[in-house]
Amino acid sequence: MAKSEEKAMEVPEQELVPTEEMERTRERRCFIPKTDIYETEEDIVVVADLPGVDQNSIDITLEKNILTIAAFGNPTLPEGFNLLYAEYEPGDYQRSFRITSDIEHDEIEAMVSNGELRLRLPKADSAKVKKIPVKTG
């Protein structure tokens, strides 16, 4: 891999800044997870990095085309050790996206492995691209 790409991997996590309208109830810091979004003919695929989060502590909601991912980390700190040096901080994650296509709400799939969330949002029939065959006259 090129050196420049490696540099890009070092970008620290951005923190979610609390605003006047929304204040968090937990004291833990909340980060914006890095996310990839793809679209295929059939689905919208959302992949988010959620290190330190297991399948039981993720809330996914889709309401009025707003997809919200909220995840709560539950770190186990090494017992009998003191923190000497820190480059990251375990925390919570939250992020919302506006989904522009109609989604089949009942068929949404979510999977977590190795701290990576993979969401598959199948498009409703009305949102699928219809190809119109062109006939020769």
């Binding site: 070092e10 620290p12 090494p78 050790f81 923190l83 000497l84 040096y85």
Partner: peptide, 22 residues
């Protein structure tokens, strides 16, 4: 912001005691 900017990937935390490190 109590954490330092990561010096590389992956970001690490170091925990220490008299008998070793995690």
């Amino acid at each position: 912001s109590r954490t330092l900017r990561p010096l590389g990937f992956p970001a690490i935390n170091v925990w220490t005691s008299d008998d070793g490190q995690v």
